[in-house]
Amino acid sequence: MIEMSIGPYETTLNLQLWKAYADEIEISIETPSGEKLPGLSEKIGTQRYRAGETDLLVYYGKPGPFQVTQEIYFEFIPAETYLTSGIWKLYLRGRRIKEGNYNLWLPGGNILNPVTGFYRPTAEETLTIPSTAARVITVGAYDSGLNAFADFSGRGGKQLVYFKPDLVAPGVDITAPVPGGGYSGMTGTSFAVPFVTGAAALMMEWGIVRKNDPFLWGEKVKAYLRRGAQPQPGFEQYPNASIGWGRLCVSGSIPEI
């Protein structure tokens, strides 16, 4: 059973469940009032249910040309103004299980009511596209002022076929230009990524332009950045799902010649 809270005055919400397409499960939903909706039917097209002040649309996806997983998408729509608030319960019952792994996702970016969320969430496997791609350099964030990991930064997990993220860079209270002129302190992994982008550019300039390493691009840049990454207090094992190979260090990433 998964418990999810919908806070007061929430106007819209979507929930994604991802699982192996080979696994067959039965899904049922219980509303905050205790009403149990009919068991969901795995069929092509959209199913619609009414639950209190909320209309629930459910869509079963199919595997695609590049992935063998299945998305089950839930859209909560207010019948009038707001969604039915309280604790919603999602029951998953295995009918024919071969792998047994699943993940559920709610929208990120602080767009939801602070009370809205899972009751027992886990931080693992919270990386988002495109950081989940194998050949990109995936960057997390840490607080350079406190020298501490930033808890908002997405994590990798055991279900990924490769370790992510690759490393972390400063991403808390970063001075950046703002619309209309001036500067302000910004926080987020979006502000950590430019540090690594600049580091990669400097390394490629050293390698390619200055002819110290003419083939310094792609996975080679990633390998150098991983090797030069520095340990972060609070972590003993590397790589790990939070900071990968460690903190960005350009000087440690350029090999001696």
Rank of each mutant, 00 (worst) to 15 (best):
I2P: 01
G7K: 08
E10P: 09
L13V: 03
L15R: 09
W18F: 09
E24H: 06
I25F: 14
E26N: 07
E26W: 11
I27P: 03
T31D: 14
S33C: 06
G34W: 00
P38I: 12
P38W: 06
K43R: 15
Q47F: 11
Q47V: 07
R48N: 14
R48I: 15
Y49P: 10
R50I: 08
A51K: 07
T54F: 05
Y59H: 10
K62T: 14
V68A: 11
T69V: 04
Q70K: 11
Y73E: 12
E75Q: 03
E75K: 08
F76G: 04
P78D: 01
A79Q: 15
A79Y: 07
E80H: 12
T81A: 10
T84H: 07
S85M: 06
G86I: 15
W88T: 15
L90D: 08
G94Q: 02
G94T: 02
R95K: 15
R96T: 13
I97W: 10
K98D: 10
G100W: 09
G100M: 06
W105T: 14
L106V: 00
L106I: 03
G109K: 02
N110E: 11
L112W: 08
F118T: 06
L127H: 11
T128D: 13
A134Q: 06
R135A: 12
I137M: 04
V139H: 00
G145S: 08
L146A: 09
S153P: 05
R155K: 05
R155S: 07
Q159W: 12
V161T: 07
P165Y: 06
A169N: 04
G171Q: 09
A176I: 05
P179C: 09
G185Q: 13
T187E: 02
F191W: 04
A192F: 01
A201C: 02
M203F: 03
E205C: 06
G207E: 00
V209D: 13
V209L: 03
R210S: 08
K211Q: 07
K211L: 04
N212P: 00
R226C: 04
G228S: 03
G228R: 02
A229K: 07
Q230G: 08
Q232F: 01
E236M: 06
E236D: 15
E236I: 15
N240I: 06
G244V: 03
G244S: 06
W245K: 13
L248P: 10
V250F: 13
S251G: 15
G252S: 09
E256R: 12
